[in-house]
């Protein structure tokens, strides 16, 4: 039985090429389970193109209140109790405003309020061909991604890895630095941060490295579109050496990356000798070395 090593690719700010890098790594690594934890904007399936869904499950979401007009006497106690301005003067609850706190439910003297649990989204375990597994989830609009959906998705991936005796799980992490990111990072063996040389990119790199350090997880850094701002690229490199981070590669500004996305392919499959592909293949080799040392 192989030990399962999970590696996660995160970015802080969205749109830095996280999913494009993950898709390329999916093509280069053999013997792995792929996971998309970016459930707000799940995109990896658009490249990995699963052949079939092996199993799937709805995912319970936040609780919402609603008022039964038959039982409601319009006494106004709930209006007074609701802190979220979710109840209209004619006693209808706006589901987008309702926090599901249950104050109206607990205080209604006529039992006219119901609390229901909706579905927040669905997760899928899929087969991408050659019996390789890919797990992803999609949220419904207006639902919040929380640690729980990320935990559920990672859990399914580990089940797949274990049953097929696969030692590597590669996770496309969510953007930001909030709860879903924390849930996608905890317990992994390597965090790969992909950033770009822009003020927002540098700022987010610092925040996400702080997070990885907190959990004492080995962190590697990739800079995408490295050639758009040499000054900030150097600043990122200095930051990495100062903080003992593994700088594992830089990807040039390359229009082939967008073309590959439009073709529904990973960059290394689309144009294996373009600048971005060469850089990513080099990054792949460095990740292999890091994993070899685990």
């Amino acid at each position: 039985m192989k030990k399962i090593n999970e590696i996660v690719i995160v970015s802080g700010k969205g749109g830095t090429g996280k999913t494009s890098l993950t898709a390329a790594l999916a093509s280069l690594f053999t013997g792995k389970v792929m996971v998309d934890c970016d459930v707000d904007a799940a995109n990896l399936h658009l490249i990995l193109n699963p052949e079939k869904v092996v199993r799937q499950s709805d995912f319970a979401g936040g609780k919402k209140a609603d008022i039964d007009p038959e039982l409601c006497t319009k006494c106004g106690i709930c209006l007074d109790a609701c802190r979220f301005e979710a109840i209209s003067p004619d006693f209808v609850i706006d589901p987008f405003m309702c926090e599901g706190c249950g104050a109206c439910f607990a205080l209604c003297p006529h039992c006219a309020v119901n609390i229901t649990e909706g579905t927040a989204g669905t997760w899928y375990v899929t087969d991408t061909g050659n019996n390789e597994r890919f797990v992803y989830a999609e949220m419904h609009p207006g639902e919040d991604n929380s640690g729980k959906l990320v935990s559920a998705v990672r859990n399914e991936a580990r089940i797949e890895a274990k049953s097929a005796d696969i030692g590597l799980v590669i996770i496309d992490g969510p953007p930001g630095i909030g709860c879903p990111v924390i849930s996608s990072v905890t317990g992994t063996k390597l965090v790969i941060v992909i950033t770009e040389p822009t003020p927002a990119g540098v700022h987010d790199l610092e925040r996400i490295v702080g997070l990885a350090n907190h959990f004492k997880i080995k962190t590697a850094v990739v800079v995408n579109k490295f050639d758009i701002n040499p000054g900030l690229l150097n600043k990122i490199k200095d930051y990495c050496s100062l903080n003992n981070l593994d700088f594992i590669g830089e990807i040039p500004f390359d229009s082939a990356v967008t073309e590959a996305q439009r073709a529904g392919k990973s960059i290394v499959d689309y144009k294996s000798e373009c600048g971005a592909s060469i850089a990513i293949k080099d990054i792949f080799k460095r990740i292999e070395l890091i994993i070899g040392d685990m």
Binding site: N43, P141, G264
Partner: peptide
């Protein structure tokens, strides 16, 4: 949005709101 499959996929979800 941006003219890619990623952009379109996420745009559809956002516009539904």
């Amino acid at each position: 949005t941006e003219p890619t499959p990623f952009g379109l996929h996420d745009l559809k979800i956002a516009m539904s709101v």
